[in-house]
Computed example of a mutant assay.
Amino acid sequence: MVWWNVAFSPASNKAKPKGSDDAYKAICAHLKKLFIDYSCDLVALCEVSSLDITAITSQLNLTGISSLDLANEVGRTRFDIVVLYNNLKLEVSHTRSLSRVKSGNIIKAAQLIEVRPTDSEKLMKVYLCHWASRLNSGSEIKRKLAADIVYSSAQEFMVDGDDVIVMGDFNDNPYDESVHVNLNSSRCHESVIAYPKEYFYNPFWRSIISENKYSQLLVDKTSFRSGTTKYKQLNGTLWHSYDQMLFSGSFLGNGDWHLNENVTKVLDDYDFLNDFESRNSPIDHLPVLCELTNLER
């Protein structure tokens, strides 16, 4: 599975859409690489409109790939997500939109979908989230409220031992309160294994530190990339891990499916980085990928 903020059409009415023929052509090339080269079965994109979705799906032209348009309006704003998936291996359906009105503001918490492998009767519950931008006032409170809404809903499934995944652009890092406290996510395998119906496991703690380690010999390395997006903050941090995937304890040995952390990562190969770093591309986030395995299949 992949999550990717492609920055075509932010939900804000004040934001100018960035979709274009060249941008759609580029994203379709990336999507083909994800589905073919990376063998992805489900890709969720955010910051897209229904117009973007129509353009992308008409140009993608891949056999066996279906789409689920979740860019629906809620109040004066909208959700901005589409799910593309391999219909030969998965059945995907929309369950409900999670939102709440707080002091006249709509808190968009998540779109909940059900994912079922075609050879199984067991469903995975997947929450797709794009939380309030840090550029807007009151956004921290909105993100915490969104996390509370998602966790309260997810707990109903987790106590029954269901497989639950929360993925999205949280606009917070793994250590920030909305993700770490409100979503009850941990970097500690053993805590999640011991309390699988209570904690989410967050493998993207690993992404907050650069894989490149500085030394005097590192003369040809100019980038110490970490995380999925980059912008300047006054606290001295340029890189941020806002795009993450969280997994219920059932994926750490308490269920049929298992998270494969060797393949779970930020995708930063040349093609993705090239558009991420290009001034001619709207893309300002790198995608994140996970692999789930079941040895009996």
Rank of each mutant, 00 (worst) to 15 (best):
K122L: 03
Y85E: 15
R96H: 14
F157L: 04
L112I: 10
D80K: 04
D162H: 01
S152C: 01
I113V: 13
Y85Q: 10
I149W: 02
S97T: 14
H130T: 05
L123G: 03
I107M: 05
K142H: 05
R100F: 10
E121N: 07
S133C: 02
N87W: 14
L88N: 15
H94G: 00
T118M: 13
L123M: 03
V83D: 13
E156F: 02
C129Q: 11
D163T: 01
A146M: 00
V150T: 08
R134C: 04
Y85T: 08
Y127L: 09
K122I: 07
G75R: 04
L135A: 03
D162W: 06
F79M: 06
S120V: 01
S93I: 12
R116G: 00
S139E: 08
N136M: 09
K144W: 00
S153C: 12
Y151I: 05
I106A: 04
S139T: 01
V166S: 03
S99Y: 12
G104V: 07
Q155K: 03
M124V: 01
V150L: 12
Y85M: 10
V115F: 05
N105M: 03
S139G: 02
Q111W: 09
V101Y: 07
E156A: 02
H94W: 09
K108W: 11
S139Y: 02
L90G: 08
V82H: 13
N105S: 04
V82L: 06
A147G: 04
V150R: 02
I107L: 05
S137C: 06
G138K: 05
V159N: 13
S120F: 12
T77Y: 12
L135H: 02
D119N: 09
A146Q: 07
W131R: 01
A71N: 15
V150S: 04
S137P: 15
S120N: 14
C129L: 08
R143N: 06
T95M: 00
S152P: 12
L98G: 01
